[in-house]
Simulated assay, not measured.
Amino acid sequence: MRMIGTLSQKNQARKFSDFLLVNGIPNQVEEEADGYQLWVRDDRHLSAAERFFSEFQSNPEAEAYRGRGASAGAIRAREERLAKRSPVIDVRTHWHRLDTSVGPVTGILILLSVAITLLAMADRSNELLDYFFITRYDVVGPYLQWSGGLPEIRHGQIWRLVTPIFIHSGVLHILFNMLWLKDLGSELERRQGSLYFSILVLAVAILSNLGQYLLAGPNFGGMSGVVYGLLGYCWIRGRYDPSSGLSLNQGVVTMMIIWFVLCWTGLIGNVANWAHTFGLVAGMAWGFAAAKLRR
């Protein structure tokens, strides 16, 4: 399934959907907060559907789009009859956003997160875990003490710019982040490729880690900055470049933004809010730039 665009009016979306179907392109319309999304069921029809969509936007009242409802209705009725006779369900139609596969880079990120989090739980002295924080620090009473200027990184331990994303403070923390990483990461990796996805993750990780360190200190960890970066990228890239195939349900975006704001209130506890913020902004900016360059 690939989304080809969004129309603001229901009757226009239905008219174009009928036109596509009559021209041999199975599709469906989904209502979202910003309008009616048009999805093509088979990627082989994507280029033709995008061309038709561009032409439709230029002149939606053209004669070619009129009077297609009856023919399209007959096709849909025939499809429904065939579906009732067949025990096979086309998952591309019924659950086009459900995919249990995990991208290779996404899988590696999940495995590293689990491994280092288990290490954190087992390493009570934090001697090994110290190598994964952005810089070493000491706890002196209620305060943290550390050397400014990231001396370890300046002396060659450049992995510290990234590795805080693998440190999680508990089961719920890592479970929440890994579920989001699996869904957002696998979809983005599948659409954009493993190399592109890896570069995006590294860039967002470094920016969100540096932002959190500079504004709140070195005592932080977690994949949530990267997760918010992936969320921002998919959200904005899909909105401004529907042909990318990336799309987020408005309810998902709303829920994540509510959680983002809730974390800033302090009710959730000690949260790396600056990492969230830098990650989200970086992802949105990258998604917007990628969409504009695509055009």
Rank of each mutant, 00 (worst) to 15 (best):
G103W: 07
G156E: 03
E63T: 10
F133M: 10
T117L: 11
L119N: 04
P151T: 04
D99L: 01
S101K: 10
K84S: 15
H155T: 12
I75R: 02
D99E: 07
T117Q: 07
G67S: 02
Y137S: 05
G67D: 06
G141L: 01
P164Q: 12
R92V: 15
L38C: 04
V171N: 05
Y131E: 14
G149L: 02
N126I: 03
S47L: 03
F52W: 12
T163M: 07
R154Y: 01
S54Y: 00
R81E: 15
N59W: 00
L46C: 06
V139R: 13
D130R: 15
D99K: 03
V171T: 12
G149Y: 00
A122R: 15
G170A: 12
M178Y: 03
Q145I: 05
L150A: 01
R81F: 11
G170L: 00
Y143K: 14
A70C: 05
V171K: 12
D99W: 00
Q37L: 08
W95V: 10
A74P: 01
I116V: 10
D42W: 02
S71P: 02
E50V: 05
A83T: 11
S71Y: 00
F176I: 09
L82E: 00
A122W: 02
T135P: 00
T93Q: 12
A72S: 15
S86G: 06
Y36V: 04
G156K: 04
R76A: 12
H168A: 10
L38M: 10
A70S: 13
F52Q: 12
R44K: 07
T93I: 11
I174R: 01
A115V: 00
L38V: 03
A49W: 06
E80T: 15
V88S: 05
L111E: 03
F133L: 09
L119G: 08
L129C: 10
N126C: 11
D42Q: 08
L119P: 05
Q145S: 03
S71N: 08
M121K: 08
P104S: 10
F133Q: 11
D43T: 10
I89E: 02
I165L: 09
G103Q: 08
D130Y: 11
P87I: 09
Q37A: 12
M121S: 13
P164C: 11
R44Y: 03
A49C: 04
L46G: 07
M178N: 14
E61D: 15
G35V: 07
V40C: 04
R92I: 15
E61H: 04
E63K: 14
T106F: 00
F176A: 15
H155K: 02
F166S: 10
R68P: 02
P104A: 07
N177A: 06
Q157H: 13
K84G: 09
